[in-house]
Amino acid sequence: MRPKITLALNSLLVLAFFLLLWQVLTVLLHVPAYILPGPIAVAAVVGSRFSSLAASFWITTQAAAIGLAASILVGIAISLIFAQWRWLRRLLYPYTILLQTVPIVAIAPLILMWMGSGIGSVAFIAFIVCLAPIIANTTQGLISVEENLVHLFHMHNATPAQVLFKLRLPHAMPSLFVGIRISSGIAVIGAIVGELFAGSSRVGQGGLGYSITYANAQLETNYLFALVLAATVLGFLFFFLGIFLEWYFLHQWHESRRAESGN
């Protein structure tokens, strides 16, 4: 326990030192606020424009959450199909890699053109960037079941559905959560990228990505910093949500969860 507390304190000290250095340098070097506001100015704008910041934060949260949830559901469904029919997996799996390699920044405008601006297309962009890690990890978990366990099920004349849902799917849960952990971080990035292109149907009320472009255009750099800070916090929250879900579902039985927490 004691070393952990010391470690946390040291990390906070590093943060405090960095903020202090930042503040001192902006004051001493007379950096204009539209180039680089100091941390105190950023904190002030977080306070004064908290309601619009929170509104943007909530819009982006919704888009990222919808995209992530959809990618988990669709990803599991696709992985189950891939696990059940090997020929289909061999045929289609290479194309799921395309989801990961396609530059999302380049196709986001296309999606907005096709689907119109608004939370639907933003969530869809988040969904696309989240899907590949879910499919890759879950499929790997489903097909890497030890042969003896499959034999055990066959000795009981198990049906293919029983092998899939009572053996392969639970076996794939740790891998699924690795995928969710990766995707939960990039869901927020995907949503913000989507919003950069047109995240709102009404001017002045959009998600974090939309507000970032707006604040940038208006040279409201301190608000821009507040938005970036909010986006970072949101990414953290999603990441820890993924970690929490993994812990919640796996901690009772999964060895690696215990091993990691021991470190």
Partner: peptide, 18 residues
């Protein structure tokens, strides 16, 4: 004849989630 047979593997091959 599997109804009348049981197979015991080298490892316990238990399902860890159960």
């Amino acid at each position: 004849a599997r109804q009348m047979m049981s197979f015991i593997f080298q490892d316990a091959t238990l399902l860890p989630w159960r």
